[in-house]
Amino acid sequence: MKPKLSNPSQKKSITFELTKPMTKQILNPDTWVDRYSDYLFNYAVTRVNDAEIAKDLVQETFFAGLKSAKNFKGDAAERTWLISILKRKVIDHYRKINSQKAKSMVRITPNRDTENEGNFIEQQVADPDSLLENSEIENKELGNAIHECINKLPKKQALAFTLKTINGLSTEEVCKELNINPSNLWVIIHRARTVLMDCLNTNWFKI
């Protein structure tokens, strides 16, 4: 009993807001691969620059997620929680290769992929005329934005769009995979694209 509260309706609304997201967040490990693997993979691959390593990191993330599923309190969204695990995994990965480097006394290039990354010292110097750094960051953000929008799509549309656009499969292959006919596929992709255009509209569409 709390008779001190002046406005009972206010209290009601607050508790409603608090409890609503909490009850919503439950882990469904069965759906993880379908729903988040692309998003996590994209996140990892932009940070480690190697598809194989990124794949392993994503897999480790799922394992770690399963392992500590009982510690999941349910106050964050599933995806946010998985991303935070992946972040740790990426940091661990860099720690590991750095300690390997230290053993062989090579400390000047912390990045393994020197071709794409350039020298560490060179990266520190700001080149006022260069738009390269900016565009790289922008592309990362753009990738995240697109993935976020794809995650909002209905499952079938998201799958069709990813297979066709990102994996670059032919129409026949996608139709086989989803068990639909081509004209159906085009309608699904068209709907997905329309939603994506609206979703990205505010930030990225400046024609």
């Binding site: 897999q59 297979l163 994996n167 694209r193």
Partner: peptide, 26 residues
Amino acid sequence: KLTSLCDQANLKALPAEEKEKMKKIL
């Protein structure tokens, strides 16, 4: 514009067979 944005973002996705493998292991 959407197509060029998707190209620009250089999106990557896991191939379907890799996903199946992961599902199995999981």
